[in-house]
Design a binder for these strands. Sequence first.
DNA 1: GTCAATATGGAATTTTCATTCTATCTGTTC
DNA 2: GAACAGATAGAATGAAAATTCCATATTGAC
Lengths: 284, 284
Amino acid sequence: MAMPETTTEVPQDFEALKAAILERKAQLPKRLRQVAAYSLDNPDEIAFGTAASIATSAEVQPSTLVRFAQHFGFEGFSSLQQIFRARLRERTPGYEDRLKALSNNDHSRLESGSIFNGFVAAAHRSLDNIASSVDPGAFERAVDILAKADTIYLIAKRRSYPISSYMAYAFGKLKVKYQLVGTAAGIDEDVLAMATKNDAAFAVSFSPYASESAAQARLLAERKVPVVSLTDSAFSPLAESSKVWFELVEADHAGFRSLSASMAFAMALTVAIAEKRQRLAEGG
Amino acid sequence: MAMPETTTEVPQDFEALKAAILERKAQLPKRLRQVAAYSLDNPDEIAFGTAASIATSAEVQPSTLVRFAQHFGFEGFSSLQQIFRARLRERTPGYEDRLKALSNNDHSRLESGSIFNGFVAAAHRSLDNIASSVDPGAFERAVDILAKADTIYLIAKRRSYPISSYMAYAFGKLKVKYQLVGTAAGIDEDVLAMATKNDAAFAVSFSPYASESAAQARLLAERKVPVVSLTDSAFSPLAESSKVWFELVEADHAGFRSLSASMAFAMALTVAIAEKRQRLAEGG
DNA sequence: GTCAATATGGAATTTTCATTCTATCTGTTC
DNA sequence: GAACAGATAGAATGAAAATTCCATATTGAC
């Protein structure tokens, strides 16, 4: 039997446990460190899972979980698990509560806090809006066009650029051929010149519209390259060059428009395209 | 053996179960009604307790709990308990309603639509999570550090890159001096070499961590350049180099993590910095 | 009041699960 | 490079928990 650790106290709540784990993580042996990372990253799993299921998920042995718990002074895994369960019982003060607290408080002291909440709220509003403003049929058609394309050209400037840069990253991971247009100045024309009607383009532009993006989309459309676009108005110059286009108005906070809805849209489109491509490859 | 109930469906979420219980409560026999009342009054107990402990607390026999579960189409008590547990995992105000609204709209009818819904839901979940995981005090400190900086260095690779590219765009608009690190290969070292302790850096990196980002953050930290970072785990290599760091776990759909919360965070940070700068300029 | 149908309590059984134990592996010290 | 200490994997164990079963009780119909 190991001596009871009188020097180090057994953490009694989640915060104390988290602190203890963080403090000792560096000295922990490999597998225990693995558990440490897993436990902080997936606290809900620890709360509800069984030793066996957690062990599988964290890629360790159940016995490792027990040893981990004992390292932190608990009798066994079960008693450590209680800490994680208690955490869920005492509901953490949610975002509504905090907002309320903020609005009741002195504004100048928590200025940054209200900015923060403002953007979270704007993002929520954007997302609430998106489902009703995107037509499922159009989405399906867009996926169809882009999934059949050989190379997908991604056109976006300025505020829209983060969206296409995410798509570029994801397409890379998903092994979908793409070309990001508009990174380095000057070579865009040459890149676009390679596009054929077997390719397709996805253009994103919000008001105030980058004239280059519109021009590039028009150029491609004239050369029979199908264009799908995402914009924030039916009057967008992109609309006329596009086979399918989506109108997506982001909510704003203090004049700064959210990108959350566009980002969610872009992710969905990206994954839907990749998924459809796989199906086409298998089926055909 | 009882016939499987083909007419009545087994409730799949807490809301459905609650509705079913309320609907059938009146016709239930005494002990089962007792359990029905208890389960709605003490959902947390059901989630965390064992059949024996709950039975004692509700003043019934364990077998009654099993019968209760079977009455509602579950295989046994354990599967009913899962519903109560799932509810705690996803407990965020207003979230259920939104999801329900989503699954009722046209999108769920088409295949790509479910992908679309999935990403919107993941984005919502991320945003719900963000307010409780970001400490207002830390946010304030981060704003403080970055607002006082001469030039802000933005470090991000791969999946995090869209975030810093948005910040670069916004800083440009807001006339905040910045340097985007990691665009073109090779020159990063030279750019970072110019940073002094009057500057500051904002680094973003999510697991799997780009080793370059961590190395660059460390480099700056060693040269006394204050670093603020955004990451998804307390074990991130960024954490140790940072004066202030934020842990932000994005929800995912089909393994693709949302960026909505990070994006909202980045916007809030950007605007808060700009705002504070203006105040400093006026006041000083 | 009798009978049948349903509900209930509680013990028996089965299943699941955390924990313990031991052989093996890994890394370190001399 | 041998010997040791600590860490780990995986099977064995025993405890705890869920479920089943059956005798008894209750309810309602005739």
